[in-house]
Design a protein around this nucleic acid. Structure first.
Length: 466
DNA sequence: TGAAATGTTGGGGCG
DNA sequence: ACGCCCCAACATTTC
């Protein structure tokens, strides 16, 4: 029982309901390690989050977290050899790179008589366990979720945080600061006002959501100004909270359409991870290969206007500026800005994927891949390509009083509601009165909606039969 | 988790 | 009073 073991933290930066860490603590004296693996790309906004999350975790670990950057395999092997560690624990990742890396590390450690124990701490249903009766993976969400998930075994029950921490330290070369997660400029400071990071904050956010957002969730989640979305995504990505903790907390509530709908959103997260597991190229390759022939037209000026929130379409610009200012976009608005990029600017979803990857604090390989393919129409169970969002109508429908748009596009805040989403239709008098000068204080629309929609539909017809 | 085009219906103005 | 037209309002089809 006095064995020395290593627990390898990855995207499971929490003490409670951490099955691997729990078992590690039962088995001996634990060295908790986080490795910033230089083989794995992390976006800028995510690095910002990770920096604070590691600090919170380190606090919970009584300053015992050992952080190091480099190659996971050689680092773990070296530590085990140097400090006579005989067993290594971690929670599984279901991302393609991690799966291969984990396999390799297990083999290498086994060759040195170091045993490994791995656990599922991040998914309600492990992807390899869910298949159709013919053994092939589901490609449609509803049967995947209803039949494949809900009708199979119930998700793993949660475990508490380890009772008695027996941790040990090894000499450190450097601390969390020296991982270089925070950039030298100060662009990220604007995020500070929008997020509380770490396990405690994640639990608080869950309970706040249950108290003030869950009721009415199914309908109200579409309105970006309302407080009816949980905003738990970055906490989930970094594992500050587990889906099991959310699942079993929510499911205790009286079942209704809001509860079911919220749980099904966790189901979509499962589906994304499931797709990435079974189709490891999902981040690169069109799930529907006929989209390989789609005539995308990259245009740097248009793309740049999209990233800056200067498209001339207020709801799109509001979303892109929310992203820039907070590292997050409300779900409804994500669909609007993504649809605009792919179907009005006709720019390949890879460009949107990369921008989101760098800017989102909740950037997640599975969700980012699956969701961009969903919007682009190239994905599994995707939105049909011809479903093209009209940003004027979407704004009028879902930002009814314009609070969201006015918040992020303040130069339009004096415009009356009926022109807020189409300022180019307002008369000179109204524009004057609202202190808006198109082309100066706010751009003209960078593309024509009707025209680009037609081009998109025609382009789609080209690949349809392929 | 669409929107535009097209079709249908019914009330009201008007000769 | 009646038919005709117009056009909301709603439903259906198409992309």
């Amino acid at each position: 029982m006095n064995d020395k073991v290593l627990f390898w933290f990855r995207n499971d930066l929490r003490m409670a309901d951490n099955p691997g860490f729990y078992e590690a603590c039962l088995s001996g004296e634990v060295l908790p390690v986080y490795i910033l693996d230089h083989n794995i790309d992390i976006g800028s906004a995510s690095k910002w989050w990770l920096y604070y999350s590691l600090n919170k975790l380190n606090d919970s670990l009584q300053n015992h977290l050992h952080v190091v950057s480099g190659d996971s395999e050689s680092i773990i092997l070296d530590m085990c050899k140097t400090y006579r560690i005989e067993r290594v624990y971690w929670n599984k990742s279901y991302e393609p790179f991690r799966i291969n890396q984990d396999d390799k590390i297990q083999k290498v450690l086994a060759e040195h008589n170091i045993s490994t124990s791995t656990y599922n701490g991040s998914l309600l249903w492990e992807p390899q366990k869910v298949t159709k009766s013919d053994g092939t993976p589901y490609k449609v969400f509803t049967p995947f979720y209803r039949k494949g998930c809900l009708q199979s075994e119930v998700p793993r029950y949660t475990v508490s945080a380890p009772k008695n921490l027996k941790l040990f330290k090894i000499p450190k070369q450097y601390g969390i600061k020296e991982l270089g997660l925070l950039p030298s400029n100060n662009w990220y400071k604007k995020f500070d006002n929008h997020w509380e990071i770490g396990e405690v904050a994640a639990q608080e956010k869950l309970h706040n959501f249950i108290n003030s957002g869950l009721n009415g969730y199914k309908e109200q989640r579409n309105y970006p100004f309302k407080k009816n979305v949980s905003r738990l995504s970055p906490h989930l990505h970094f594992g500050e909270i587990s889906p099991n903790q959310i699942w079993y907390t929510i499911i205790e509530k009286i079942g209704n359409k809001d509860v079911d709908h919220f749980l099904s959103e966790l189901g979509w997260r499962e589906f994304s991870n499931y797709l990435l597991f079974h189709f490891p190229n999902l981040n690169e390759i069109n799930f529907q290969r006929k989209f390989d022939d789609f005539p995308w037209k990259f245009n740097n000026e248009l793309f740049s206007a999209w990233t800056k929130g200067e498209t001339g379409y207020p709801i799109v610009d509001a979303g892109m500026r929310e992203l820039w200012q907070t590292g997050y976009i409300h779900n409804r608005v994500r669909m609007i800005v993504a649809s605009f990029l792919v179907k009005n600017l006709l720019i390949h979803w890879h460009y949107g994927r990369d921008w989101f990857w760098d800017c989102l604090v909740d950037a997640d390989l599975a969700n980012n891949s699956a969701s961009w393919q969903w919007v682009a129409g190239s994905g599994a169970d995707a939105a049909p390509y011809f479903r093209i969002f009209n940003p004027v109508i979407q704004g009028e429908k879902f930002d009814i009083n314009g609070e969201y748009t006015r918040r992020f596009v303040p130069e339009l805040s004096l415009l009356p509601n009926n022109y807020l989403f189409k300022p180019w239709e307002a008369s000179k008098e109204i524009l004057n009165r609202s202190s808006v000068e198109l082309g100066k204080t706010y751009p003209f629309p960078i593309v024509d909606l009707r025209e680009t929609r037609e081009i998109a539909l025609n382009s789609y017809n080209v690949i349809r039969g392929v």
